[in-house]
Simulated assay, not measured.
Amino acid sequence: MTTNVAVIGLGAMGLPMATRLAEKFTVTGFDIAAERVALAAEQGVQGAASAAEAVAEANAVLVAVRTGAQLHDLLFGDAGLATHLADGSVVILTSTVGTDGIDEIAGRLAEHGAQLVDAPLSGGPVRAGAGDLLIVVGATPAALEVARPVLDQLASTLSIVGEKPGDGQALKTVNQLLCGVHIAAAAEALALADALGLDREKTLEALTAGAANSFMLGNRGPRTLQAYDEDGAEVLSRLDIFVKDLGIVGTAARAAHLSTPVANAAEQLFLLGEAQGLGELDDSAVIRVVAPHRLS
């Protein structure tokens, strides 16, 4: 039975996930920033002096990294976290890193008596703290049995999409293709409404009530309307995340010899946004690539 959980990285997502898990499990957290460890301690999370110390007694270890290379380095590089994992434990990968190298990482973890649970998630910090995340999972039945209580505590929607690590990454790649395209399309649509002299608030209300609606239009639309404000929209998902994720989509599509021209076009908008210094803004700021200045 899973009772001890380690969370490596107590950033924007790691901290609320650790806090949520601490409601049910004994949770130990580590972050290179001491102030984040102290903040987690105020929320019932035990602090550790190192990542190795954090995972020593854990049945399940949550990690959030930006790339597959970072995951490889964390587990098998200088940190060598894999050598400190408890026998029979699972490493739960919550990041979107693509499928490249996942088989190798899972194989090397098995040599250390641990298993990889491929569980990329969506939802943002507020939903993480409320246990309201969407998580897609690829894992062996044995690994899933260990990880399931942790995943259930974090997710309102848990989709088991395959029985091997990499299946979760594959589905999340497909998901991010659609999300990136929908955000870019919403930006173009609202920029066109502006150019045609329409009231953008009324336009958004009408669009979300009809067949043109999508989750991303309804979710990002109101923030898109704030993109030209002095402070911009609240940052709930950074623009440069879609630079990374649509790059993963492109890599996967090329490997499959599949043409994805619409995703490629959306990727160019996000790349331009990053080049224009918008990378740290909310991804809804991509409208400023289409229309640098509000037209009406």
Results as ranks from 00 to 15, higher is better:
1 M>T: 13
7 V>G: 06
19 T>A: 14
21 L>P: 01
28 T>K: 10
29 G>M: 09
30 F>L: 08
32 I>Y: 07
44 G>V: 14
46 Q>I: 12
46 Q>L: 13
49 A>F: 01
50 S>H: 02
52 A>P: 04
59 N>L: 01
60 A>R: 05
60 A>E: 07
62 L>P: 00
62 L>T: 00
64 A>M: 14
64 A>T: 10
70 Q>A: 14
71 L>P: 02
72 H>D: 15
80 G>T: 01
81 L>K: 06
82 A>P: 00
85 L>F: 04
86 A>P: 00
90 V>D: 09
90 V>M: 09
93 L>R: 07
95 S>P: 02
98 G>Y: 11
101 G>H: 05
101 G>S: 05
103 D>P: 04
103 D>I: 02
104 E>N: 02
104 E>I: 01
106 A>Q: 05
109 L>R: 03
109 L>Y: 03
109 L>T: 02
114 A>E: 08
116 L>A: 08
119 A>I: 08
121 L>F: 14
121 L>C: 11
124 G>E: 11
125 P>S: 10
126 V>H: 04
131 G>H: 12
134 L>V: 15
135 I>P: 01
135 I>M: 03
141 P>A: 06
141 P>F: 06
154 L>Y: 06
155 A>K: 00
155 A>L: 01
163 E>K: 13
163 E>V: 09
172 K>Q: 07
173 T>W: 10
178 L>N: 10
179 C>F: 09
181 V>D: 06
182 H>D: 14
187 A>I: 09
194 D>P: 00
195 A>H: 05
201 E>T: 13
203 T>I: 03
206 A>K: 04
207 L>W: 08
214 S>Q: 08
218 G>A: 10
225 L>C: 02
225 L>Q: 02
225 L>H: 01
231 D>L: 13
236 L>S: 06
240 D>C: 05
242 F>P: 01
242 F>G: 02
244 K>E: 07
245 D>Y: 13
256 A>M: 12
263 A>H: 05
263 A>C: 06
265 A>M: 09
267 E>Y: 13
268 Q>C: 02
274 E>T: 06
280 E>V: 12
280 E>Q: 15
286 V>M: 08
289 V>L: 11
290 V>N: 01
290 V>Y: 07
292 P>L: 13
